[in-house]
């Protein structure tokens, strides 16, 4: 059914409901190459899911190969909102519909006051913010009844956010014995944008808690012609060579990795060269996992 050696991390995809994604990934699914599927379940609450995507979710759920990845819970929003209460109720229903191996969400916050949604943003690392985050993560764990974890952010307002994020996440995870979803492209963004070395950034994270890895591509941008080049986590391109290098390094340091997931926005798989690149990226990940996992 799935082509995988024992004891290696599963290699899989983040499911997108765009038809381009289905076209690009269909051969990988049909050949049993996709060993695990990650589903951003709260995206499915907002839109109708195509039948092919529903069938894939059910297929992987029935075989205990489905990972849940929340996007809009907004863990560190200071005010417990009606929206979050509705989110948790829908999440409980989701967990009774599908069998998830584990559930992850993003570190940070994306809603406050009248702002219903923004990009995930970091918070200052203060005792009050830790207390808040622990409460919200406990609620997620109580509803999930499977292991829960947090993903590191790419975005940071400054060096202090970058330096504190690993410690902050560690403090949030400890009470629920949660896991770290380490996004390697997010690390790459911070390594470039804040001129950090790989060892010093990795050392700030609880590597023994890493249970899942994300890989993706991104883009470069300048806000003015003279400003520095900023790396952004836009999920719209090939996986950079530096991120493949990071994968090999991290697999040797993180001995509890259960799944490695390739992410890419479905609508960007809109040409044969892009599709071919995506499949090459997926196969490259499998080769590295086989060698280093």
């Amino acid at each position: 059914m799935f082509k995988r050696k024992q004891n290696l991390p599963w290699v899989g995809l983040s499911l997108m409901t765009d038809p381009h994604f289905f076209t690009a990934t269909r051969p990988l699914f049909e050949q049993g190459e996709v060993e695990v599927l990650e589903w951003s379940f709260d995206a499915g609450w907002e839109d109708t899911i195509p039948s092919w995507a529903s069938e894939l979710i059910d297929f992987y759920s029935q075989r205990d190969r489905l990972l849940g990845h929340g996007v809009t819970y907004s863990l560190l929003s200071a005010e417990w909102s009606d929206r979050q209460m509705r989110w948790l109720k829908q999440f409980q229903a989701e967990c009774s519909r599908h069998r998830y191996v584990h559930i992850s969400e993003h570190f940070g916050w994306m809603s406050a006051g009248n702002f219903a949604r923004s990009a995930p943003l970091p918070m200052p690392y203060t005792p009050d913010a830790v207390s808040l985050g622990r409460d919200r993560l406990q609620r997620l764990a109580d509803a999930a009844k499977v292991p829960v974890g947090l993903e590191n952010l790419a975005f940071a307002f400054g060096q202090k956010d970058v330096a504190d994020q690993g410690k902050f996440i560690t403090e949030l995870l400890e009470p629920v014995d949660g896991f770290l979803l380490l996004d390697l492209h997010n690390l790459f963004c911070q390594i470039h944008n804040f001129q950090l070395s790989i060892p010093e950034l990795l050392a700030s994270y609880p590597l023994a808690r890493v249970r899942e890895l994300h890989l993706s591509g991104g883009s470069w941008s300048r806000t003015t012609p003279d400003s520095n080049l900023v790396r952004r986590d836009t999920h719209d391109g090939a996986v950079p060579e530096a991120v493949f290098d990071l994968l090999a390094i991290v697999l040797k340091q993180c001995t509890n990795v259960k799944a490695v997931i390739l992410e890419r926005l479905g609508h960007t798989l809109n040409s044969e060269p892009e599709i071919e690149q995506f499949r090459q990226d997926f196969n490259r990940i499998k080769q590295i996992v086989k060698r280093c996992g």
Binding site: M110, A116, S118, A119, Q159, K160, S221
Partner: peptide, 29 residues
């Protein structure tokens, strides 16, 4: 006031990126 130290660490270019993101994704009472 308690966040002053944090705010002092803001870097112009990252605030600019934040502004871009907030414009893209950011009102509902």
């Amino acid at each position: 006031a308690s966040f002053e130290v944090y705010l002092n660490t803001f870097e112009d270019r990252m605030v600019e990126v934040a502004a871009e993101l907030v414009k893209k994704w950011g009102r509902l009472n």
